[in-house]
Amino acid sequence: MKGITLESVNEAANRLLFDMDEKECQALLGELLLLRAQMEKAGDIEGLDSHEPMVYPFPCEISSLRDDVPETPLSVEGVIGHSCSIKDNQIKVPKVVG
C-alpha cells in the first residue's frame, strides 16, 4: 500500500479536483491509517484470496440490449439551461489548453 502521508493524501484529493486544508488532511490521515490497519487485519482472514472480487450483491447477468431507435433529444434549453455559464447555445468554460 502506498505510504499514507500528508502528501499522498493531498494528491488523492487533488486527483478529484478539490482542496483540503491542513486540519482536514490530518483528520483524513487518521482515518486512512485506521482503515489500513483494519484492512491489513482483514487480509489475514483465511480463504480471502480465493474469493473473487465482488461487484454486484448477487449474480445479475442480463441478456437483453436496447434497440437502436433514436428518441427525441432535449431542446437546446434543456441541455444548457441548467448551466450558469453559456454562450452561443453552448456551455462556456475557460480556454482549455492541453
Binding site: 436496447r66 433514436p70 428518441e71 433529444p73 432535449l74 437546446v76 441541455v79 444548457i80
Partner: peptide, 27 residues
C-alpha cells in the same frame, strides 16, 4: 454509424446545430 448513442437513446447523426442531439444521460 448507429442511429442512437452507445449508452443513451439520443440521436447519433452527423452535423446538426450544437446541443440539438443530446439526451439527459449525455449531460
Amino acid at each position: 454509424k448507429t442511429r442512437s448513442k452507445m449508452f443513451s437513446s439520443a440521436p447519433n447523426a452527423f452535423g446538426g446545430l450544437p446541443n440539438t442531439q443530446v439526451g439527459l444521460f449525455d449531460v
